[in-house]
Write a protein that binds this DNA or RNA. Sequence first.
DNA 1: CCAAATAGTTAGACAGACTAAGTTAGTATG
DNA 2: CATACTAACTTAGTCTGTCTAACTATTTGG
Lengths: 141, 141
Amino acid sequence: MTTDDTGALAERLSRELRHLVLLLRRTTAGQPITTQQYSVLGSLEGGGRRMTELAEEHAVQLPTMTVQINRLEDAGLVARAADPSDARVRTVELTGEGRARLHAVREARIGYLSRQLGSLTPEERAAIDVALPALAKLGRS
Amino acid sequence: MTTDDTGALAERLSRELRHLVLLLRRTTAGQPITTQQYSVLGSLEGGGRRMTELAEEHAVQLPTMTVQINRLEDAGLVARAADPSDARVRTVELTGEGRARLHAVREARIGYLSRQLGSLTPEERAAIDVALPALAKLGRS
DNA sequence: CCAAATAGTTAGACAGACTAAGTTAGTATG
DNA sequence: CATACTAACTTAGTCTGTCTAACTATTTGG
């Protein structure tokens, strides 16, 4: 692919990303937690994280994350803790219930996507398979 | 790709879609209109549409679209009109200003995506190019 | 020890989404 | 044709998600 094609690719990608967003929305529609809450719980799966880390990872301001974590805490899905080495820092961890909820939503979400993917041809699935690392890189840059 | 792999693909896709959403958000960050407003304006480019059509296309309830169109109308970017064949129906059209705004935001968005795509390798861009039709189909099903 | 920087929270505003309920207009049926 | 039903929208109220500004508490550097 030449550099000249990059603009055209950007235009097509721009056009399709909107539909992927709607797909994402349908993926978690009717779930007991919102897409954002699911996303935050996912960030905590590997262990406790500090508020600042969570805000950066989700590309939101710190007060926004405070509100989100407040709601998850009220729902009993996460717990705040203190950092022994720095009293300013609050860490956030999954509770048992939070972990269970995360897994349940993930199963439902993956099930939905599996059915959608099942309606594609094997070639189309293979194309997505090949493109995923590039899309991942794009999303993280 | 076999059927057995579909579940694993769904899992990876599920994981990466979140990052694409964040990419999308950055794409229109700092623009004079929100992502949703841009999206609605895009739906009107081909001509007037009725409220119900817009709500369905954007996968929102009718009252949500009413509010969005109210704001776009207040901003002078769209105009409501009556349908001569059915007095219940309101149609919505781009104003000249709305069309100009749409084009400006689209240029900025495509420019951003172009720069992001430019940081990928030619092979990665080619992979996205090949996968786009499949992703489009996925998003529309 | 004090000033500046860092980590979070609180408060106030607004966009975006939903449901429920109301209005107006078309449709169908006795 | 009158009545009831359906359809297209809007309004009102609520909640989530996001922001900025201002505040508290803590650490760090001179």
